[in-house]
Design a protein around this nucleic acid. Structure first.
Length: 215
DNA sequence: AAAAAGATGTGCT
DNA sequence: GCACATCTTTTTC
């Protein structure tokens, strides 16, 4: 179950500029229900992909079969495959616009056993420290393309806990070959669950203030 | 029809 | 740090 003090994000949350949404998603909890079980984690790293003046965005050259859901309602998932993996994005701005936020890393909080079954790794942080990794660990695949985070019964977002304070840092985005200078990657400063080596940390700390262990 | 590219991850050096 | 597996979508011929 989930903490009632962290209510589900509603439609209005997603109707904002993509860069703002990318930052505001940090600290929010992503929850996926699988039957009677739950897998969940707190978002610690995102990237903004703007429709306009952003050649790295999938929607920059207009609508195609792959990116169609980017042009749909904000709050829906845009899932695509790359190199035999999946990446999960959250549509932003307004319907018909073509922008989204890539979820790049989570701090796992619930469902460690399920995640490990989906993605057997030696170190827990390797479960969700990358866009393809977190989709694999959470059981997110192409069937979730178009899923509405506002209405779905199986996957949603919960707002960030107000008691958790952290600094947001930004860098250029990872793994792209165009617009490599734009600082549209955002992450929780010091989180050990952030992907890659571009992790800047003043001090390593978790956002999840529960028992200290993922259930 | 064929080829190239890609918002990745892994393993080896 | 670098090569490359692997596969889907998009672009080009």
């Amino acid at each position: 179950d989930h903490d009632p003090k962290m209510p589900r994000l509603d439609k209005s949350f997603f109707l904002r500029p993509t860069i703002v949404l990318a930052q505001r998603l940090l600290g929010c909890k992503l929850v996926h229900v699988l039957g009677t079980e739950i897998v969940a984690g707190i978002i610690v790293e995102t990237e903004a992909y703007l429709c306009e003046e952003d050649p790295a965005c999938h929607a920059s050259k207009g609508e195609t079969k792959r990116n169609r859901t980017m042009f749909g309602p904000p709050g829906c998932l845009y899932v695509y495959s790359i190199h035999n993996r999946y990446c999960m994005n959250i549509v932003s701005e307004k319907a018909g616009y073509g922008a989204a936020v890539l979820v790049r890393a989570l701090e796992p909080t619930q469902g460690f056993g399920i995640m490990s079954a989906f993605r057997p790794v030696l170190k827990p942080r390797d479960l969700t420290n990358g866009p393809g990794k977190l989709c694999q660990s959470l059981g997110i695949d192409i069937h979730f393309n178009g899923e509405d985070l506002v209405e779905s019964k199986r996957i949603w977002l919960e707002s960030a806990s107000e008691s958790v304070d952290f600094e947001v840092r930004s860098t250029p985005r990872i793994g792209i070959s165009q617009a490599t200078d734009l600082p549209y990657r955002f992450f929780v400063d010091g989180s050990p669950f952030v992907s890659g080596r571009a992790r800047v940390h003043s001090q390593s700390r978790d956002l999840f203030l529960g028992t200290g262990l993922c259930t």
